[in-house]
Simulated scan of single mutants.
Amino acid sequence: MPRIASGFLSSMSAGVVVIKVGTSSLVDVEGGVLRLSNLARICETAKELRGRGYDVVLVSSGAVGVGCQKIGLQERPAKMSQKQALAAVGQPHLMKYYHDFFSALGMTCAQVLLTNDSFVELAEYLNAKSTFKELLKYGAIPVVNENDTVATDHIKIGDNDTLSAKVAIMVEASWLFLMTDVECLYTSNPRVNPDAKPIHVVNDIRQLHVETGSGTQWGSGGMATKLTAARLFTAAGGRMAVCESTKPESIVQIMNGEQVGTVFNSIGAPLSSKRRERKKWILSVSVKGQIWMDDGALDAVYNSHASLFAAGITRVIGDFGAMDSVALCSSDGSQFGVGLSNYTHEEIRKVKGKRSKWFADELSGYMSEEMVHQNNICLLSNNGDSNGESDSSS
Rank of each mutant, 00 (worst) to 15 (best):
E362K: 01
I348E: 06
V326A: 08
M323Q: 14
G53E: 06
G261K: 04
A78S: 15
L208T: 04
D295Y: 04
D148T: 02
A306T: 05
L227H: 03
Q259S: 05
A5G: 15
G257P: 00
L114R: 00
F177I: 04
V56I: 08
A168L: 10
H154R: 10
F8R: 15
S13D: 12
T234I: 01
A168F: 07
S130A: 15
V17D: 13
D153L: 08
V287M: 05
S307W: 03
I141G: 03
K226C: 02
Y302Q: 00
V59N: 10
G22D: 11
R35W: 11
R206K: 12
Y98V: 05
S130F: 03
A104Y: 11
G32P: 00
I19F: 12
I4R: 06
H93Q: 15
L163P: 07
R191I: 07
C243T: 15
K20D: 11
R3H: 08
E172H: 12
G268P: 01
V29N: 03
M240V: 02
H305K: 09
S245Q: 07
R315C: 01
S272M: 09
D159Y: 06
P198D: 14
S37Y: 14
T228V: 12
D28Q: 01
L34I: 09
E369M: 04
I157Y: 13
L136Y: 12
V171R: 07
R315D: 10
P248L: 00
S364W: 08
A196L: 09
M323I: 03
G65Q: 14
S272A: 15
L73A: 11
M179F: 11
V192Y: 15
I141P: 09
A78F: 10
F102Q: 00
G238M: 03
I71M: 14
V182L: 05
H154I: 03
D148E: 13
I155Q: 07
S25M: 13
S188F: 06
L36H: 14
D385P: 02
G339N: 02
R231C: 08
A14K: 14
